[in-house]
Design a protein around this nucleic acid. Structure first.
Lengths: 192, 192
DNA sequence: TCCTTAAATTGACCGCGGTCATTTATTTGC
DNA sequence: GCAAATAAATGACCGCGGTCAATTTAAGGA
């Protein structure tokens, strides 16, 4: 069982995360350096890695927390009546993930849990987003020939694709939402 | 204009790529170290970066070449008559990209060209794959309410999603092809 | 053949993520 | 209160990708 967590552990961890948040707020996620975080938190480098498995683990928390807050808002919506509706409530999420290439890279890297024992924040938010979508699909005007689970998976897939293309010069000109709009019309409202 | 490329330039480049291919064949993509490549090619480290912008640029060539070869095979198919057909000819591609997590990571990172001046091999293969799919959609039994361009985009999106989920412990149990089969049935043959 | 000019190569060096044996601080049993 | 035991923190060190001023090699021109 071992001993209980000491007070200073929580304090050090809080210092590290606070320092990291400040750096991200000032210079963006990509600019974050572990050495800068530990310097700002006035602890040694080794301490960082005693608290976080690696740099990505910290990013998982920072980015995951942000997404979680956005999902809190999204959860307030109980019903969607159109694709436009759906896109409107998804907009903040799209905006955040496409706001910095590095965020999207980390998101993709950590979106799938590689081992059962370490399902990170970001992976959890994806699952949570999925459940929210399934809830919204239950009482919606969209196609009924496939399960709400599958509808949700498709929406997520198209969201990620739309964001990915927003970073690609070959597909610029269209913004994320209008591209997603085309996808979701075809996915949710097939005319045949 | 400058002078013509010297012979030794081509030779050095060929040595570097050959050395890299050997390492990949022996130990996989993830295990490749630039220092090992230059050692095997008996050149200095700086020489590597005179030939390739960074390590990813070499990976782009190695992985891009492999995908290109798989697309050569795919291009021989002139017609698909079912989702199973489509999945059968896509299988080699799925297999390769899901064979190593690192390959998939590089693929995602380089699949979108970040600048017009450096559209890499992998980004080009994605475009090529898209054109092949559009060709196949022209004379297919799939839905006709949306353009072949959009059909193709959706197929690519679902392929990537299926591979991504294959790396996720929360979604194991199903293999890539059977998951993709569910997606493509819903995407290409909506029943409503 | 020699000299000039540009291309190609070199390797010491840097940045930064991550490790680990050692030291310091806390808790627990007596 | 004092050791023994365990948790936390430290910083020198390593691996590896990437840079750059200095050097070597090859390609015209006279």
């Amino acid at each position: 069982m071992g001993r209980a967590t000491q007070q200073r552990t929580l304090k050090t961890r809080a210092q590290l995360i606070a320092a990291a948040r400040k750096i991200v707020a000032d210079a963006g996620y990509e600019a974050l350096r572990v050495e800068d975080v530990v310097a700002a938190a006035t602890v040694a480098k080794g301490t960082f890695f005693a608290h976080f498995k690696d740099k990505d683990a910290l990013m998982d928390i920072l980015i995951g927390d942000h997404i979680d807050a956005l999902l809190d808002d999204m959860e307030k919506t109980s019903r969607v009546t159109s694709v436009d509706d759906l896109i409107a409530i998804t907009k903040p999420l799209l905006h955040f993930i496409s706001s910095e290439r590095y965020i999207f890279d980390v998101f993709l890297r950590l979106s799938g849990a590689l081992a059962v024992e370490d399902i990170g924040k970001i992976a959890t938010t994806l699952y949570r987003h999925d459940r929210i979508l399934v809830g919204l699909m239950a009482d919606s005007p969209f196609r009924k020939d496939i399960s709400t689970d599958l509808l949700s998976e498709g929406i997520q897939s198209f969201c990620i694709n739309a964001v990915a293309l927003s970073f690609c010069v070959l597909h610029r000109g269209q913004d994320v939402e209008s591209r997603l709009s085309v996808y979701l019309d075809a996915w949710l409202c097939p005319k045949c």
